[in-house]
């Protein structure tokens, strides 16, 4: 399983202002990294840099020592899958099966179409997501939770080693949030390296593993969840009072906001 790492990564949309500065982050197989930070600090930008859709101003993103932004698109997509926050699934007229098959693009030649085995894999992926009944549904008819599940299914069709998810639980109810978080844990247990962005530190606590905090100057601090989730750090990062304490009935740290 490959390792994805950034070395002194710096990026800005304009030359005058860099939004991400000197980022050093390593994603290893089987590990979940939750990126937390206020709106607009560049969390989504960082995910796009990690999968090579943006080219760093300086520094690099390396997939097993190969520069990601210089890899051919298909080769890159075979290793790294991205689940963007805004997907077009709700606007597409395709069935779930046809949508899932789009995930095979990186494995197919320019003029090839999906093979019989790819159709079987799509059924298998939906089975693993406990969503076999969605196979022939139209994407536009799915609920928000189902759409997110199918979008992750499409990313799994790429058979990636690393999966990047941009706020995968945004706009989902608690039941669906739990389903997605459990799924991410399962995928990490199977050896997938997972990076997600979130606005809820409680999710980082639930997922354990690593937490990366991005501050308003575009600097990133990464460490074990237990070292990173505390009142002082979160209050500083978000610029508002956040209170973190251990709640015995939940058997975990809980992050609370106060007005």
């Amino acid at each position: 399983m490959p390792t994805l790492a950034t070395k002194a990564l710096t990026y800005g949309y304009t030359k005058a202002k860099m939004c991400l500065n000197d980022i050093n982050l390593t994603i290893t197989p089987g590990q979940i990294t939750t990126i937390l930070g206020p709106n607009g600090v560049g969390k989504s930008t960082l995910l796009q840099l990690l999968c090579g859709l943006l080219t760093p101003v300086s520094g690099s993103v390396l997939l097993d020592q190969q520069n990601v932004s210089q890899l051919p698109p298909a080769k890159r997509a075979q290793a790294i899958a991205l689940v963007p926050q805004m997907t077009s699934i709700g606007a597409l007229p395709y069935t779930v099966l046809d949508y899932l098959l789009l995930g095979k693009t990186a494995q197919l030649g320019l003029f090839q179409k999906p093979r019989e085995a790819d159709y079987d894999q799509a059924q298998q992926v939906l089975g693993e997501l406990n969503a076999s009944d969605l196979l022939n549904r139209e994407c536009q008819s799915l609920s928000g939770g189902q759409m997110q599940l199918v979008t992750i299914g499409k990313a799994l069709m790429q058979a990636p080693q690393i999966m990047l998810l941009d706020e995968p639980t945004a706009a989902l109810d608690y039941r669906n949030q739990v389903q997605i978080l459990k799924l991410l844990q399962q995928l990490a247990d199977q050896g997938l390296g997972i990076v997600l962005t979130s606005h809820d530190p409680n999710q980082a606590v639930l997922l354990k593993h690593h937490v990366a905090l991005v501050d308003r100057t575009g600097h990133l601090e990464v460490g074990d969840m237990s070292d990173m989730i505390n009142s002082e750090k979160l209050t500083k990062i978000y610029g508002t009072n956040l209170h973190v304490e251990y709640v015995a009935s939940c058997q975990r740290l809980v992050c609370m906001i106060t007005l």
Binding site: R76, P84, S88, L101, G103
Partner: peptide, 23 residues
Amino acid sequence: ALRFRLNVLSLSPTEALATGVNL
């Protein structure tokens, strides 16, 4: 011959690129 790719090109640019298309 590109008819499957047309499905992929219907995705949003970010999604299409992340799927491995040379957009």
